[in-house]
Write a protein that binds this DNA or RNA. Structure first.
Lengths: 346, 346
DNA sequence: CAAATTTTGATTTACGTACCTCAGATTTTC
DNA sequence: GAAAATCTGAGGTACGTAAATCAAAATTTG
């Protein structure tokens, strides 16, 4: 049988109240007595029954998710996943609140973090913007002892407890490697190949990192591949469509396109309308309805994906663990870079 | 506030005891009264607090994992993951027992299932062998109301509740697609290419399915690729090494190797010793210490992987849900086909 | 040394559910 | 209409922990 607080009290020769004081760090225990109790705890290998403790406290973990009110499919999907978690929250003793902020706006994010700080939740998850003022706001949350998880986009060298998202440098490298290998046949051997890169914005850290990884691999392993100057489509379908259509018109020899941001609907439209040209090899990010269709139609060749559902569930697990001071299972919380070809679509 | 049994009793105008009888399906309630209670439950949207219920029952979920005592890295890793779950089990109100059976032995598996049936656990997970007698044994477990999850290898059209493993046909297709694309450059265009397939045994369902998927894609999309007769290495490193070495010696034009089973240490040794030949393109399954090293050394080009940790945790979650009659989150329990290149190694 | 303070013990209630007993009410059976 | 069977209510205890109260003991302070 698992040892209980009663067993500790018996072994340590103290009362239940004293055991409780030690266990919950309450004052009023001499250090000698505290020592005896801690010894008993150690010798019995006691671990507090969290379910019973939460029941007694009638505790619910109150978490806040701060999400950018972006309208691309990925962010919409992320929202949905969080709402799904909200729906399940009554079963899981969690109370999750969603706070929407305007996208790409450090000031708004900081303001949201400050508001959140005021009502002291048991944990906060947010899609970070890599800016000093955000880092400072995060530090204030840490000071207040509020566990923090960054979601999708990280805030490195900050006081966040955990990052629930993919390694974007590795994602870029993977894209580069696939691009290089897939191109090796039809183009490279003869005369080299030209590749276009479509990003959302070079101000966003994940996009910068993906480009960095991509360029590194191409530079190291596929020197015959030339990367055109990055097109910044601001994750906007219409703008992206124009830019890609233009690029294809001007550079008839584009052999590959790496779309490392969102707004892929525009990219797909541009590709569908580019008649008469040899279809370029396309690698994009995030499996959405449109990229999925394009993948099975052969318009896109590979999609790198991060599973928003996994990210949200992982963030919640981690916040819970941090709130309880428990360790996290690193392997379970690692967010994979999913690679989808038309052959392994889920 | 979440409604409790007390609220139901008040609304339905009955006593707590009666509510309890209805909730737990105990006898001694007239159908009229039962109706009133059920109505109250529905109108309040009551959901039983599982944590409190389990506490009151001082319940622990007793699960049994039946695992083949195979000595390849993947199975060893699977064992370790289950042992990890055993270590965590005291926190999770689970009691997990591991039963080892000889590999590839339907009789032994059936015997193990029968033994398990005798002590009526709350759930069973096992690595299935696709044989009629196993299917029959599974049916007996289902009759006894014991939830069942197949692990890694499925038992389709049987009474198992869930399969915690990858779609092996899709895995084979993915391998075929990668093989076709990766080969397209250096070989295909000119004169076609020859590909060798190394399997464990064609008697095992997952191996058959992987081959099926692989062959289909190659046949459909890469008609210039010729697949040599399958080599069956029985997942044995030594045997696999000999077979691959022989094949390479006899067919100097082997451009690719798909290793769809275990025993990859032998394959890697054979490749390392094949001096003077053009290195074939190699796609293998399962990320282990040796395939990992080979991947980063460039001996293997891609590894398809199933995450044993995820499979084990998923099996436990599903068994728990089934034991409680709760729904499972399909998206969370889908086991991905991980694709690793040297660029996205975790 | 008395008073004030700190430490400790004993006991109780609570969380939400399960499960038990016993008595009283209602219905069914003969 | 009495006996038997079935249904229902009231109340309690338990699970393991949290948290509170109050009194007694030990220690420190003046």
């Amino acid at each position: 049988m698992k040892p209980t607080v009663h067993d500790i009290a018996k072994i340590a020769g103290v009362s239940l109240a004293t055991v409780d004081r030690v266990l919950n760090g309450r004052p009023g225990v001499r250090s000698v007595t505290r020592g005896k109790v801690e010894e008993a705890i150690a010798s019995l290998g006691y671990v507090r029954d969290l379910a019973a403790a939460n029941l007694a406290k009638s505790r619910t973990y109150s978490f806040v998710f701060i999400l950018p009110a972006n309208d691309n499919s990925f962010m919409i999907g992320l929202h949905e996943e969080v709402r799904g978690a909200v729906a399940r929250s009554s079963f899981e003793r969690t109370g999750i609140r969603i706070v929407d902020v305007p996208p790409f706006d450090p000031g708004a994010l900081v303001a949201a973090l400050e508001t959140v700080l005021a009502d002291k939740p048991a944990g906060v998850a947010f899609v970070a913007i890599d800016a000093p003022e955000v880092r400072a706001a995060a530090e204030r949350l840490r000071q207040a002892g509020i566990p923090m998880v960054t979601l999708v986009s990280d805030l490195p060298d900050s006081s966040r407890d955990h990052y629930a998202g993919i390694d974007n440098i590795a994602a870029g490298r993977t894209a580069g490697s696939l691009m290089g290998r897939f191109l090796s046949g039809p183009f490279l051997a003869e005369r080299g190949a030209t590749v276009a890169v479509l990003a959302g914005s070079m101000l966003v850290r994940d996009h910068r990192e993906r480009l960095e990884g991509f360029s590194t691999v191409i530079g190291e392993a596929y020197p015959n591949v030339r990367i055109l100057p990055v097109l910044e489509g601001r994750d906007d379908p219409a703008l992206s469509e124009t830019m890609i259509a233009d690029a294809l018109r001007r550079n008839a020899d584009i052999a590959g396109i790496y779309s490392l941001g969102a707004g892929n609907r525009g990219l797909i439209r541009a590709l569908q309308n580019a008649h008469g040209l040899r279809r370029p090899l396309v690698i994009a990010h995030e499996l959405t309805a449109s990229t999925r269709a394009a993948l099975s139609d052969g318009i896109i060749d590979a999609v790198l994906n991060q599973d928003a559902g996994h990210e949200v569930r992982s963030a919640i697990r981690v916040l819970k663990a941090k709130a309880d001071g428990l360790p996290v299972l690193a392997a379970q919380e690692r967010i994979r870079i999913d690679i989808f070809l038309k052959d392994n679509l889920p």
